[in-house]
Design a protein around this nucleic acid. Sequence first.
DNA 1: GACACAAACGAACGATCGTTCTATAAAGCG
DNA 2: CGCTTTATAGAACGATCGTTCGTTTGTGTC
Lengths: 201, 201
Amino acid sequence: MGKGEQTRQAILDEAFSLASCIGVGGLSIGVLADRTHMSKSGLFAHFGSKEELQLAVLRESQQRFAEVVVRPALRLPRGLGRLRAVVANWLDWTKTCNLPGGCVINAAAAEFDDQPGPLRDEVRNALLALNRTLAATVAKAVATGELRADTDIEQFVFELNGIYQATQQRRRLFNDPEADRRALVAFDRLVRDNAAPLPKE
Amino acid sequence: MGKGEQTRQAILDEAFSLASCIGVGGLSIGVLADRTHMSKSGLFAHFGSKEELQLAVLRESQQRFAEVVVRPALRLPRGLGRLRAVVANWLDWTKTCNLPGGCVINAAAAEFDDQPGPLRDEVRNALLALNRTLAATVAKAVATGELRADTDIEQFVFELNGIYQATQQRRRLFNDPEADRRALVAFDRLVRDNAAPLPKE
DNA sequence: GACACAAACGAACGATCGTTCTATAAAGCG
DNA sequence: CGCTTTATAGAACGATCGTTCGTTTGTGTC
C-alpha cells in the first residue's frame, strides 16, 4: 500500500469515529486536519471535495459493517441460528467497532432523508442492501422450516429495523441498561409469532 | 399579543418547518432571517443566542405534538381505543403539522445523543415525557381489562417506539407506500400478543 | 403632538467554512 | 545517485457563521 493510500486510510479512520459523534454532515475539513496533524489542503487533496470525503466515510462504514456484522454470521449454518447471530452482531456493532457515537449510516439516514443528492442516495442504498441481507437471512430460516412458510419476510425485516432503532435510542439517549434485554424480548416475540409449529414426534 | 410576541412566533413557525428539513443543528440565523424577511440582528434579538433559538424550536415542537397527537385522543374513553388513536395520530403527525422533513425532535435525538448540553437535555426530556404518556395510555388499556394484567408496559412502549422509527425511515428514505400498513400490522401483533383472553359469555 | 420604550436595522467583528493556487518535501523507480 | 511522480504544506480567496454595537424606525401612552 503506497503512502497515499496509507494516509487516506488514516484520515478515514479518524473521520469515521468523528462522524459517529457529530454526524457525517458535521464533519469539517479543518477539524479533521487538526485531528490528523495535517494541513487542510493536504487532507483536502485526498478527496477533492467535502462531499467526496463524506461519501468515503459512508462507504467505509458499509465495509466495516459487512465485516463485523454479516461475515462472522455466515460461518454459522443457515437458519434461525444465523439470523440470531446477525441480529446480535447488529445490535452490538457500535460497541465492536470504534463507534463512540452510534452507527454513522443510521444517523446519516435521519440527517439526509430530505436532502436529495449523492449522500442521501448512498445512505439509501446502504440501508436497502442491509434490508436485502436481512430478508435473505430470514428467508433461509423459512427454508429450513424453522419459521412458517407463510412468514411475511418484508414485515419481519421491518420489525427488526424497529427493534434496532428503539434499542439505539434507549441506549444512547436514555442510557437505559435494560435496552439490550428489551431488544431480545422483542426479537423472541417476533420469532415466536412466526415460528413453525413443532413437528409431531 | 404584542408585536414582539407576534414576530417571535412567526420566526418560530418558519424555524420549525425549516428545522424539519435540515435539522435543529442545521438552523442558521442568516438563512432564517432571509426567510422571514428580517435582518440577522433583528431576528437574533428575539432569542439572544442560537442555542436559545434551537431550544425554542424544540419546545414549540413539543407543544404542537401535545396538541395534535395527545389532546384529540384524550376525548376518547380510556382504553385500547384511545391507545389506537394516539398511535395513529403519532404516526401521522408529520403530515398533520407542517413538517415536510419529519419530526424535529426525533431527528434531534439522533443528532445530539452524544453531545452533552441543553439541547440534548431538552430532547431527552421531551422523549421521556412521550414515553410516560404512552405508558400511561397503555396502563389504562390494562386497567380496562383489554390488555392482560401482566402486560410489560415498558416493553410495550419500547416496541411502539420501534414501530414509529421503522415507519418513519421507510416512508422518508425509501418512499415505501406500504410503510403505514406495516406499522398497523406490527401494532396489531403487539396488541394481540398482550390482549386479555375474551371473557366467556 | 410629545414622550418613553420596544423592535428592527445595517454595519462590522473575528472565526471558520470549503476551496484554489503555488511551492516545497517526500516517495518511488531507473 | 538523479529524475519523475506523488504527497503535503502554506497562504489566500470569498462566503457564511454567531454575535455585538449604535442608530433608526415603529408602537403604545399620557
